[in-house]
């Protein structure tokens, strides 16, 4: 302020004053940053720094690179790269397999998400009290979450194998006929969805249990005094109280279902006749299995990213609106 007011000062003095002021400002900023980082609040950044670095290396940079590569034709080693412009996008929207994979992904999502979101909520309500039995059930439900998709895929392949599967054999022995779980174009997508739900059901249930346990007990007492039975308590007290958790699970499961890959890769690999080929499975096959078209695979990844981002943003806004 002094400098601005000192219009009659020689120019060299004015400039020097400005420089000194800038240096002082910079010094102040650095000092403030240092001070902030030394504070209890600021030191938290040191703890999240490793995660941020990993996030940048393994998520942010690949994301930016894949956006860039979507406009190129590139092989696996990235040494034969040519500009493709929007050609890859045009190709994607006229690629029958890609469009089919989007359809399969949507069907899978429509099957998995409602069961995950609502089913897990119902189960969570049943096992929310901290009894010994409930704790045991929680552990059982959570067990598949910690198993690898490879183990789960192999296990279910063995159990539901069309000819040598234990479950198939048991059904046949009971006179229910021979069900070809993995080789029926109308049935297999349901089987894959079931395996996926079985695998990740536990995590949704546990999140709900935590949310239910945090509901104020006085609300239940008031409802009970009003004569509400357990079901009515669940509908009128529990469900409204855990709405933020509901939206969170809906959002994460939706994003997860749209990216389904591992279970399909391990069980059906997209078959029979592409009826379980999800978008990510197809992207993987374009990138690594056959033609190694990294550019085209990136294009499809970008399209999927836009779909998932749109869905997530819409749900996130809805969630925030609910909370507000």
């Amino acid at each position: 302020m002094q400098v601005r007011g000192g219009c009659c000062l020689p120019s060299n003095i004015k400039t020097g004053a400005v420089m000194n002021n800038n240096v002082m400002d910079k010094g102040n900023i650095i000092y403030r940053i240092r001070k902030y980082l030394r504070s209890a609040e600021g030191s938290a950044y040191y703890f999240i720094l490793p995660s941020i670095v990993l996030l940048i290396i393994f998520s942010i940079i690949p994301l930016i690179v894949s956006f860039y590569m979507a406009f190129f034709n590139a092989n696996m080693t990235l040494d034969q790269v040519s500009f493709a412009g929007l050609d890859n996008f045009k190709q994607a929207f006229s690629d029958k397999r890609f469009l089919n994979s989007l359809k399969v992904t949507l069907i899978f999502t429509a099957l998995e998400v409602p069961i995950q979101v609502l089913g897990a909520m119902a189960i969570a309500a049943l096992i929310s009290k901290n009894t010994y039995t409930n704790k045991l059930f929680r552990a059982i439900y959570f067990l598949p979450v910690i198993c690898s998709a490879t183990s789960i895929g192999i296990m279910w392949k063995m159990i539901l194998h069309s000819n040598v599967g234990f479950f198939t054999y048991a059904l046949q022995s009971m006179g229910l006929g021979k069900i070809n779980f993995f080789n029926d174009t109308h049935l297999t997508i349901f089987v894959v969805a079931f395996i996926s739900i079985w695998r990740s059901f536990g995590i949704s249930a546990i999140v709900y249990v935590t949310a239910i346990q945090n509901v104020n007990n006085s609300l239940y007492e008031a409802a009970e005094m009003d004569g509400a039975n357990k079901l009515e308590q669940f509908i009128h007290v529990t469900a409204p109280s855990i709405r933020p958790t509901f939206w969170y699970i809906l959002m994460t499961r939706l994003a997860g279902s749209l990216q389904i890959f591992d279970i399909i890769f391990m069980t059906t690999d997209g078959g029979p006749n592409y009826t379980t080929e999800s978008t990510v499975t197809y992207i993987y096959s374009r990138a690594f299995s056959s033609s190694a078209s990294m550019g085209y695979a990136s294009t499809m990844s970008v399209i999927l990213f836009v779909i998932i981002m749109t869905v997530t943003v819409v749900l996130y806004r809805r969630m925030n609106a609910e909370e507000a």
Binding site: M158, H161, N163, V164, N180, F182, T268
Partner: peptide, 12 residues
């Protein structure tokens, strides 16, 4: 058989 896995059946 209409199956995507004949190895298991052959070994069985």
């Amino acid at each position: 058989p209409l199956t995507d896995d004949t190895d298991s059946m052959m070994t069985a």
